[in-house]
Amino acid sequence: MRAVRPRGAATAAAVVALLALSGCAEKADGSGSDAIQITANDSECKVSRTSFPAGHVRLKVENKGSKVTEVYVYAPGDRIVTERENIGPGTKADIVAEVKAGAYEIACKPGMKGDGIRQKVTATGQNSAKPGDPRLDKAVAEYRKYAQEQADETLPKAEKFAAAVKAGDVEGAKKAYAVSRVGWERTEPVAESFGDIDPKVDVREDGLEQGQTWTGWHRLEKALWKDGKIGPEEKKLADQLITDLRDWQKRVGTAEITATSMANGAKELLDEVATGKVTGEEERYSHTDLADFQANVEGAHKSYELLKPVAAQKDPALSTELDKQFKALFALLDKHRDKGSPDGFAAYDKVGKDDRKKLSDAVNALAEPLSKLAAAVAT
């Protein structure tokens, strides 16, 4: 997970502009001049308008501040509708998303901390009742099934990890740790959309908000690899981890998933890799970053494969490029496999500077075309 989020968050700026205004309308893919302009700096989050028609929306974000920022669109209860990470000073971001009629907040987070500088906005009108593309309906249904399967498969693996912790078996817990995280890492944007689960389960120590108690995988990771021991507190935390993961498992089926949220989620997973895994920050004690890395890319690829029938028709060149870059990144990851490792990969602290640079370059080469997927499937 990223270093800091709303409840603990990530990086930078985000999303959404408009579909049709009668007459002077946005195109269905979110392109055009009627986007919502968001200007972020270190102390402000200026939104060009606070009311816009519901539908496929596009935000054009510019960071004029001195800090890396991120932008969120929140529904009530801080449920994340969409987000964009890692918007550096002097850079811009542009994403298409689907926004239903209702009240929202747009938040800019300079320095990637806290609840952000927020602006209340409203998506007006009625939610469309017209039939959508059946191929996208199928993609959403299949992805919903996939997300639930990942949660269901995670629980027994996490329970094995927790059982080792509770038994005081440090080595057994180490072997089960990374394997227990794979399903979570594949579908993390869905979990993050609920707002309250991710900070309990996947926050790192430097991502804690003021007054927040550190729980979850990374708290136990530190105990196992840095402290090398398990005490009564860690055993309680193992039980808490399972409680929180069961909550996630039960709620996955209620997540709001659209074709554009799938596409944006795929890009978010690549941002996760770029800001946490490639740097070695995510698994700083266990050095199991490559297992997380692989799972993030697998999750992004799943979304793309499900959306590909529409994307390939609307933007063949984009689809060809995505096929190429996914293949290249998976091939590069395969070079770091280790059959003797519990998670199947070499420890990341053994990966040299040049190889890390190659991985980073491959992630960036994929992230750029992947950022265009949402516009390609917007209808």
Rank of each mutant, 00 (worst) to 15 (best):
A123D: 00
A123S: 02
Q150T: 04
E153R: 15
N127P: 03
K145N: 10
T154Y: 04
D169L: 05
K166F: 03
A167D: 11
P134T: 08
K160M: 09
A173L: 12
A147R: 01
Y143G: 01
E171H: 03
Q150G: 02
K120I: 05
A173N: 10
Y143F: 14
A164V: 02
K113C: 06
V140C: 09
G116N: 10
Q119N: 13
A151M: 09
E149H: 10
D169G: 04
D133T: 01
A151Y: 02
G132S: 07
K120P: 08
P156Q: 06
Q148C: 09
A164Q: 09
G168Y: 07
A129T: 14
D169F: 06
D133N: 13
A123K: 00
P131T: 13
K175I: 09
K120T: 12
K138V: 02
G114A: 10
P131I: 10
K120L: 05
A162L: 01
K120W: 05
D115K: 14
P156I: 06
M112S: 15
N127S: 05
T124R: 09
A158R: 02
A139V: 02
K157L: 11
D137H: 04
K160F: 03
P131R: 12
T154F: 02
A141R: 12
L155A: 08
A129L: 10
K175Q: 15
A173M: 11
I117C: 07
V140D: 05
K174W: 08
T124F: 12
E142V: 08
Q150C: 13
Y143V: 01
T124M: 12
E159F: 10
A129W: 00
M112T: 14
T124P: 06
Y146W: 13
G116P: 07
D169M: 05
Q126S: 15
T154D: 08
S128Q: 09
K166Q: 12
K157H: 00
E159Q: 15
Y146A: 06
P134V: 07
A139S: 03
A162W: 01
P134M: 07
V165Q: 01
R135K: 04
E142L: 14
D133S: 02
N127I: 11
G116M: 09
E171V: 02
D137N: 12
P156A: 05
K166D: 01
A163I: 06
Y146F: 15
K120A: 14
P156V: 05
K174C: 08
D115F: 10
A167N: 12
R135F: 00
K157W: 00
E153S: 15
A163L: 07
K138Q: 11
E153T: 14
A141S: 14
T122K: 13
G168A: 08
Y146C: 04
E153W: 12
G114V: 04
A162G: 00
G114Q: 06
A164F: 03
D133A: 01
K145H: 11
K166P: 00
D152F: 05
P131Q: 12
A139P: 00
E153F: 14
K130T: 11
Q148D: 12
K113H: 12
P134C: 07
Q119R: 14
A176G: 05
A141L: 09
A123Q: 00
K175N: 15
G168P: 01
